[in-house]
Design a protein around this nucleic acid. Structure first.
Length: 187
DNA sequence: CCCTGATTCGC
DNA sequence: GCGAATCAGG
């Protein structure tokens, strides 16, 4: 995978948008987050500035003299994050309805999935499919046919495919969902 | 543990 | 130039 102008442009755009290196790597595909960070530095893009945010202030370390004796000579792929677990209360995206689902046949519009008051929910990380792990919220956000489609990606509750906020949304009848969302938006 | 960005240095 | 390995930190 090489850095075509297109890919570099996308990298610049996503980096400017504040996506993390791993998120950008997943969106570009075929590169690791290290590759993204390395490229960012070579392009002399501005580093991450954090005024009290989650990211890293960081310093200038000095690598100890002893480098690893030898790396595996030919080694392309590093372990990728595991795909979502296939079994166990399979996450049924709440806006995809099966014919046997008699509990909820109302499809929520994407805009309804985003709470007005996002302080009430874990921080969404806007992950793409390949970034999902067992510990990330798999709540879909937006139109799957559009480029911006992503998943919530916030920290999932134990044993749930969703974060605490979306777990509530996912398993309640739509009227309950609305009530919950309204309650949240009111604070 | 999870994650983040920064740096080094063999390729 | 590239990016894995590593470091430092939240």
């Amino acid at each position: 995978m090489n850095w075509t102008d297109e890919r570099v442009e996308k990298l610049k755009r996503l980096w400017a948008e504040g996506l993390s290196a791993s998120q950008i790597a997943a969106q570009l595909g075929g590169v690791s987050r290290n590759a993204v960070i390395g490229k960012v530095h070579r392009l002399n893009l501005p580093g991450r500035v954090k005024a009290g945010g989650p990211a890293t202030p960081t310093r200038a370390p000095k690598r100890p003299a002893a480098p690893p004796a030898a790396r595996p000579a030919t080694f392309a792929a590093r372990p990728t994050s595991a795909p979502a677990p296939a079994n166990r209360s399979v996450p049924r995206p709440a806006n995809i309805i099966s014919s046997t689902d008699n509990m909820d046949i109302t499809v929520l519009e994407p805009t309804e999935l985003v709470p007005v008051n996002d302080r009430a929910m874990p921080e969404a990380r806007r992950l793409v499919l390949t970034e999902l792990t067992e510990r990330t919220c798999k709540w879909p956000v937006g139109d799957p046919l559009k480029e911006d489609f992503h998943f919530c990606g916030a920290e999932a509750c134990d044993g749930s495919p969703y974060c605490k906020y979306h777990a509530r949304m996912a398993y309640q009848p739509v009227t309950e969902r609305r009530r919950a969302a309204n309650a949240v938006s009111r604070g």
